[in-house]
Design a protein around this nucleic acid. Sequence first.
RNA 1: GCGCUCAUAGCUCAACUGGAUAGAGCACCGCCCUUCUAAGGCGGGGGUUCGGGGUUCGACUCCCUGUGGGCGUACCA
Length: 593
Amino acid sequence: MKLEEDIRLHIKNAFKLIFEVELDSAQLFLQPTRKEFEGTHTFVVFPFLKISQKSPEATAVAIGDFLKSRSGMIKDYNVVKGFLNLEIGTAVWISCLDDMLKNQHWGQLDSNGKKVMVEFSSPNTNKPLHLGHLRNNFLGDAISRIIEAAGYQVKRTNLVNDRGIHICKSMLAYQRWGKGETPETAQLKGDHLAGKYYVLFDKYYKEEITTLVRQGVSEEEAKKKAPILLEAQEMLQKWEQKDAEVMTLWNNMNAWVYAGFETTYQTMGIEFDAIYKESETYLLGKDIIEEGLKKQVFYEREDGSVWINLKEEGLDEKLVMRSDGTSVYITQDIGTCDFKYEDFPMDQSVYVVGNEQDYHFNVLFAIMKKMGRPYGEGLYHLSYGMVDLPSGKMKSREGTVVDADELMDEMFMTAAKHTLELGKIEGLTENESKNLFRMVGLGALKFFLLKVDPKKRMLFDPKESIEFQGHTGPFVQYTYARISAILRRASADGINEALSPIQKIHPREQILLAHLVRFEEVIVQAARDYSPALLAQYVYDLAKDYNGFYQELSIFNEPDDPLVNFRISLSGLTARVIHRSMNLLGIEVPNRM
RNA sequence: GCGCUCAUAGCUCAACUGGAUAGAGCACCGCCCUUCUAAGGCGGGGGUUCGGGGUUCGACUCCCUGUGGGCGUACCA
């Protein structure tokens, strides 16, 4: 909405006419008024005292007077030190609400013609997803939706890590001890089956190391020379040579894992536009190394290895190809950049990857910029912090993880328990209640993970289960369900949403309106900062503001018809914004709960 | 060693990028359902924003320094 913009324009005008200076309206910063003062918008005058040549109070009063008498928007103002608090006129609020109600695309900005690729999830096919992956997936999904809402065209991709030594570890352990079991015979999801053998491998590997150390081998040496590890490395070589037996095993096990992942993604409510597999991209990049040598971006050392010097970028010298001409991790990432661009010529490319890879992405992006790629400037690493347990970091191979499937199941069960205790499934069919448990349980989990600033690492304590009250997803969902009930009744009573002038707008209503007005601004900011947390915070505050309004003011018992209409409209708009905000976080909202 | 990063209420997190008396939730105490959904609302206690300097009208935020965590610094991925 242009409400704030209008106010800024009038302030700009005030400076021009009172102090005879031309200011850029962008530097006239408005902030929400603290709730202990009258008004909704506050202008801080401190930065402009040099211009006004007056005290903070006198400056604020001068601008306040001007706005009150000349703008036609400001009903009244008050000054506290250098803070000018503005009260907006009733008619302005009504027309503002009217504009928002009429805007069918509220919460979806016009297309800007730009393309963004978002890569997230990127699981390994040797183990099931855990809580850390949930944060990655929910973040990737939410930021995709938010960027779309901000007017970009988005392609969601998932680059599956389906080959490599860690995959061979699971395969080898299965070959040794699996006795031909399958997900069916084992009654296990395919990804969990693979994970079981990954853990088995590690256990046996550690035993071998212990044995070797007892025989007098140094620990470092033992880690490299454990027979089972050597065998896994041998298997990887066979895989690269497309050995028939290994390929069959690989294909079988991966198929099980993919089936398992599919179920998990469905439960999470997450989809992709394209799935890339590392087995198809891991050989890419060598031609770009050649190109880079010619462009003198890279240089070759005497032993034939290829390097890049990034000291000017504050980084270091980095190897991009081994002396034997084989790839390292970054080689394939370099190749994959071009590969992705050919598939989808994006302006920006977002990698949702944990912050332990900060350095890697700094190097990768510096390389692609030096190579002069058109998308080079648009590369972004959405670096998020780990989810830690009270005991420390999660480790799949040691089995100290919170499993994604198990956690989601637990959330659904807890949601069911709460719902039953509160007696809220009356009148719902079995399917409806099941769907409600799913929505609420998943909503609690997603909100829990998304409300925290992505950059920060966060703590999850399995002993203290995720809340359903307070600063939570179900709180917001509940507010939506509550408004839905009101709207159902309004509709049954035949109340239309036509707005007509009313006498006066209650402070609770003003706070709510001022909050609603900011919606699209928050979307833009969340997209710009790649932070779903901003939107989560916004929608939580909105729900809180609505509940305050709901508690203090009555809707249907109001004798004055225009006021009833106004409050219904306000409620309806709040519901729409909650629905849309939660949708952008990948969270569904129920009509009743 | 070097680089990046974090440290805010008992606990989990905010603080609009330098603005008002640092805010929410959980937990604890006390109120509010014969009026629209109490998964809600209202009130209370709880803070030297890790320590020490500096910059300025003004610092959780910026600079310096110390302490304590995390991550990285592989011809691993």
